[in-house]
Amino acid sequence: MLRHVARRSVAGLLVLLATVTATFWLFLSGPFDRARVMCGVNCTPLRYHQIRASLSADRPFLSQLGEYLSGLFVGRDVPIGKISVHCAAPCLGVSYAQRRSVTALILGGLPVTASIAIGAALLSVTVGLWLGAVAATHRNRVVDRLILTVTMGATAVPFAVVVVLAYLLFVIRWNILSGDGYHPLFSDGSFWSNLASWTSSLLPAWLLLGLFGAAGYGRFSRGLIVESLGEDYVQTAVAKGLSERAVLRRHAMRAAYPPIVTIFTLDLAGLLSGTIFIEQIFGLSGIGYLAFNSIGERDLPVLAGTTLFGAALVVLGNLLADLLLARLDPRVKLQ
């Protein structure tokens, strides 16, 4: 078991190292002049040279990469014009536009994004599983067809379009969601009132992201449960005299959990990119908000930083999923 975890961790680190290299090459070095990209339309020679210096763009690629990697572990100082911005480990670079370390920017948005993503994920999986179970047990009947139709519709509509429509209808037309922004869970005042405002500030995001995600999980788990309902061990359970409900919950759905965990990790990247749109329209200043604005600003260090942060989360998520899978399915330990 321990060896299994160790091996997967090493594999994850190798992937992460490759991601760092690829990201660095694509975002911050590589064949084209990144300083020119970041300098933008109102570029002055001074600004251009300051950016070049902050990227260490005059040095060879390997040396740049080395500096970036060492910054990840011990931190470094990045010159921007006359000042020097200290970037503590794990340093993901410095935003020229905001003159702040990318790590600090990301950590600032983390509570918001984590709250949105975790809430939405829980909603997606539980509602999805429930929909899947209801559909699978009513296979080819009206309820099943209804669930299939609704979830098909929800998965088919491009999420970005949904977000735009939601923004136009809820925020612009009906003005239901004021877009007050994020209310931290831990701040001054009583815990319960904070909890209430925290929940109400996030509820629209959870519902939108969570329910649209639930459609996908619903279709997926329906397939899995239909399959496991046809397994011999379900027949054994029925022959024992278990009620339909017990057969479904204790036997058929049990077998659907491992594939759902696997799909969840595969979809983790999608969940994070979903927060990019969500945060934008509901004015929640999380990591997605940061990334979205950096696209317009061409703030490549921030884009690179958020990319790496996302990649690290995906790798970590995979590792956790491996542990969870080994707990859910005793046969996994064998390999």
Partner: peptide, 19 residues
């Protein structure tokens, strides 16, 4: 089921829940 009349199936590999 299982109390007055019980059943044993062909394939013991798949008739038991693997988890």
């Amino acid at each position: 089921r299982g109390s007055s009349v019980a059943m044993v199936f062909q394939n013991p590999q798949s008739a038991l829940h693997p988890m």
